[in-house]
Every structure is written in structure tokens, then in C-alpha cells.
């Protein structure tokens, strides 16, 4: 946050197939529909095939100058390799959303960093498909940061999800809400 209000830099990372790009696009689309300025930058080319995938999202109340995220305010990591790679870049007082289903170690990060450890894969499997683990993680993030809601993301989802996957909309929307609920329950004061 700056004097002008919201300014949030996010990195979302995982391995290919976890829906990392879709998660980033959905976050950007939701923010844009809410009238905010956004940039979204995916990793691209050969590196995304089978390897790690990541994207950078910036959300701001005012025009975004530099779209490059060097040190994110928030980090959503879906596997261990991504935590190892991007964890050290997280800003002090930042937010880490980590998929504890696939990360079995405690992250060694600055103590000012807030950590939400969500078993995203397990939650998604319970709902019906492991594939919506990304949505659960995003739901958890949105609930924590609270500048957008999981419901808003659910409304924006048809705009970023290719039509041939629209039959999965109800499940993904449920996963978004489930992630949000998880944050609510674990972050009760």
C-alpha cells in the first residue's frame, strides 16, 4: 500500500499443469473488472513445459509504471521448488500463501512475513478435483488481502477460462470459496 492506496505486487508459482497462469490471469481480470489498474506477466516459452511456471501480477489504484516484480508483496507457491526460488524474494511484512499439500517443510523466511499454509490439493480433492487447488489457494489469498472477494473472482472466472472448460466453473467457484473459508477459520484472532 502506498499513499495513493492499493499497490500490490504478487508472484504466483508452481509447476506446469497446476493452473498457475490461469490463477494469475483470474486475479488480474477480477481486479480489472473491479476498476483497478493491473499488469500480468507470465513466464513463457520452453521453460513452462514440464518445469516451473510463474507469473507476476500488479494491482494498483493508479497507473502502473513498471510491470516488473522484483520483490513481491505477496507470494502464492504451489510446490516446494517455487517456494525455494521465490521465497527469498518476498518483501519483509509480506504474505506467503503456500500449498502445504506439496510443501512438507517450514519455510525459513523473515519473521515479519505472514504465512498461510493451506492444504490446497486435499481441499480440492474433497470438492471433486485436484485441478482446482489453484483456486483454493487464490481464495485464501483474496480473503486475507481483502481488496477483492472470492465471489468477485468467481464472477470474473468465465472471462478467463476457455469455453471448453466452462463445465468446471461450479467446481472452481466452490474451490475459491473454500479457500476463503480456510483463511477465515485459520486466521481467527
Amino acid at each position: 500500500m502506498t499513499a495513493n492506496g492499493l499497490y500490490e505486487e504478487i508472484i504466483i508459482a508452481g509447476f506446469g499443469g497446476q493452473g498457475i497462469m490461469l490463477t494469475g490471469k483470474l486475479l488480474a481480470q477480477t481486479a480489472m473488472q473491479a476498476g483497478k489498474e493491473v499488469t500480468y506477466m507470465p513466464s513463457y516459452g520452453a521453460e513452462v513445459r514440464g518445469g516451473t511456471a510463474n507469473c507476476m501480477v500488479i494491482i494498483s489504484e493508479t497507473k502502473i509504471a513498471c510491470p516488473v516484480v522484483a520483490k513481491p508483496d505477496s507470494l502464492i507457491v504451489m510446490n516446494k521448488a517455487s517456494l525455494n526460488k521465490f521465497g527469498p524474494r518476498l518483501k519483509n511484512h509480506g504474505l506467503l500463501i503456500m500449498n502445504s499439500s506439496l510443501i512438507d517443510t517450514e519455510p525459513q523466511l523473515d519473521e515479519t512475513i505472514e504465512i498461510i499454509s493451506i492444504p490446497a490439493d486435499e481441499l480440492a480433492v474433497e470438492l471433486g478435483s485436484q485441478k482446482s487447488a489453484n483456486m483454493a489457494a487464490l481464495g485464501a489469498y483474496l480473503q486475507k488481502r481483502a481488496y477483492l472477494t472470492a465471489d468477485q473472482a468467481g464472477q470474473a472466472l468465465p472471462n478467463v477460462l476457455a469455453k471448453r472448460y466452462h463445465k468446471t466453473l461450479p467446481l472452481n467457484i466452490k474451490a475459491l470459496q473454500c479457500g476463503a473459508e480456510f483463511t477465515k477459520s485459520c486466521c481467527k484472532v
Binding site: 490471469k25 488480474a28 480489472m32 489498474e37 493491473v38 499488469t39 500480468y40 506477466m41 507470465p42 513463457y44 502502473i64 510491470p67 516488473v68
Partner: peptide, 10 residues
Amino acid sequence: DGFLGQMMEP
């Protein structure tokens, strides 16, 4: 450049 080509913005 590749950045501008790949980056999404409104």
C-alpha cells in the same frame, strides 16, 4: 519485445 508481447494489461 517479449515482455510487451506476453504481458497482459487492460
